[in-house]
Amino acid sequence: MDAWVFSSVLLPLFIFFARIADVTLGTMRIILVNRGMKYAAPALGFFEILIWLLAIGQIFSNVTNYVNYVAYASGFAAGNYIGILVEEKIAMGLAVVRIITQRDATSLIGTLRSSGYGVTVMDAQGMAGPGKVIFTVVRRKNVPDVVRKVHEISPKAFYSVEDVRHAAEGTFPQAMYQRRDIRLLKYFRKGK
């Protein structure tokens, strides 16, 4: 193989894809750390750093090849983007959706409950007068469905979405329950 092709094309491509892999793993590792997954996070960290060492080793072995620097930085940027896409696709964990309405929320509450979501409602008093504060804890993959229902039924309602690290009990749509989710809930209930 021609040395120029290796140093100017193949090696930068290797570095680029290695950086995509290690940064994507790093993104996932941080998410797992935030979720308290103390076994999966270190395992991902091991492979993240192993891949990083391979990439940085090639940079230092070919320190005069500036194409490698561009590949390294480009791989880092692309890895961040791909890591976010992967995380959005997986949508691990739970989120609390807090909805504040300025008017009667009976229809919204009924729609959420009929969809199988657990709903907690409190009376509230805001600047515009009385309203309701509605809380629902849902799987992150179900947040778009809840937000869509809020927009359809109460388009002027204020809502916020926050990640939930741990939760016990709860009401979730039965069609969306999976064995893995049941095992996770039992695991966290035991306090492990």
Score class of each variant (00 low, 15 high):
Ala175Met: 03
Tyr187Ala: 11
Thr171Asp: 08
Gly131Ile: 09
Lys190Asp: 13
Ala18Thr: 04
Gly129Cys: 00
Phe17Lys: 01
Ile30Ser: 07
Thr171Pro: 07
Met28Ile: 05
Lys186Glu: 12
Ser107Trp: 01
Ile49Cys: 12
Tyr69Gln: 02
Tyr177Pro: 07
Met122Leu: 15
Pro173Asp: 07
Phe172Arg: 07
Glu162Gly: 06
Pro42Ile: 12
Met176Val: 07
Ile20Asn: 02
Gly36Pro: 03
Ala73Leu: 12
Thr101Gln: 09
Arg139Asp: 15
Glu169Cys: 08
Glu152Gln: 09
Asp163Cys: 08
Lys132Ile: 10
Lys141Ile: 14
His166Glu: 12
Ala43Asn: 06
Ser61Ile: 11
Asp2Thr: 04
Val67Gly: 12
Ala175His: 01
Leu32Glu: 03
Tyr159Met: 06
Gly36Thr: 05
Ser115Pro: 08
Leu53His: 09
Asp181His: 10
Thr136His: 04
Val5Trp: 03
Arg113Lys: 11
Lys89Glu: 13
Val138Asn: 06
Val9Phe: 07
Thr120Val: 06
Tyr159Ala: 11
Val5Asp: 04
Gly191Glu: 05
Gly83Val: 01
Arg35Phe: 04
Ile15Gln: 10
Gly45Leu: 08
Lys156Tyr: 13
Trp52Tyr: 13
Asn62Arg: 01
Pro130Phe: 04
Phe46Trp: 01
Tyr117Arg: 01
Ile182Pro: 03
Leu108Asn: 02
Ala18Arg: 00
Ala40Leu: 13
